[in-house]
């Protein structure tokens, strides 16, 4: 399932919005839509989509698979080229969407990448998700009595997790790519650099508003980023 935000006539540049996963996909839906509409108004053809097993796309949540996500990005990039007629495709992604855009960059033919707080170390992210799930089951704002470890097992914050998906994510370690890369940093507190991407020349831009992706009490709240469209638009203009 995807939505194309078209422009009148031919779009020289297209942007593929790779969504994050789990509840972050739902939390970023509105900001992705706003970004897509805003960029389309600037003459950029934009496609946003759901990977199989996520959002409105076919497939069960438990069937989520890293390789399938990469294949879906390749298909979506091809679809964007056909629909917009663009020769240049920029890959964009928030959190794990940024990780997937990075991993698919070469195969999808991204001319450049814009990654918003991408996950670069899968093992650390898995540990954070495990900690989040453990905190959830004992959180008094969710449950009057703590839920058992069995009831909360095999899930990350509302979504089922297969052993395969867990292993795939834990094995993810970002590597630099040829495409020029811009990292948008909106982490609430300085959490170190963006190794190994920054060491390889990726540009890092700090966003005005911070984003607390892991706040347990905002699981159903939309992600807000008032300066995202401006920052992304300016980055594309500079690259043109």
């Amino acid at each position: 399932m995807g939505m194309y935000h078209g422009v009148a006539g031919h779009a020289p540049v297209g942007m593929l919005l790779c969504p994050p996963l789990g509840q972050m996909l739902l939390r970023t839906h509105r900001i992705y839509r706003q970004l897509a509409s805003g960029l389309a108004a600037r003459g950029i053809g934009v496609l946003r989509f759901d990977y199989r097993g996520t959002g409105d796309s076919a497939g069960d949540s438990l069937a989520l698979d890293w390789q399938h996500c990469l294949a879906d990005i390749r298909s979506a990039a091809a679809e964007l080229r056909v629909r917009s007629g663009c020769a240049t495709v920029v890959g964009f992604g928030a959190q794990l969407g940024g990780s997937l855009a990075l991993a698919a960059a070469s195969a999808a033919g991204f001319a450049r990448l814009i990654l918003w707080d991408p996950v670069l170390d899968g093992a650390r992210h898995v540990a954070e998700l495990d900690a989040g799930q453990e905190a959830l089951r004992t959180d008094p704002q969710h449950y009057t009595k703590p839920r058992s470890a069995e009831e909360a097992a095999g899930q990350w914050l509302g979504f089922p997790v297969s052993a395969q998906w867990r292993a795939q994510l834990a094995g993810w370690r970002a590597e630099p790519v040829r495409a020029p890369t811009l990292i948008l940093d909106s982490r609430p507190e300085p959490a170190g650099g963006w190794s190994p991407l920054d060491e390889a020349g990726a540009r890092v831009l700090t966003m005005q508003a911070s984003t607390d992706w892991g706040d347990l009490h905002r699981l159903e709240h939309a992600i807000l980023a008032p300066d995202l469209l401006r920052v992304v638009g300016e980055a594309l203009e500079q690259a043109a």
Binding site: Q23, L26, H29, R30, T54, G55, D56, S61, G158, F159, L219, E220, A222
Partner: peptide
């Protein structure tokens, strides 16, 4: 729609 969330619903509840 649940709250302001889009048609997929919280944790894909509406899809399932």
């Amino acid at each position: 729609n649940t709250g302001l969330m889009h048609r997929v619903g919280p944790f894909r509840l509406h899809v399932d």
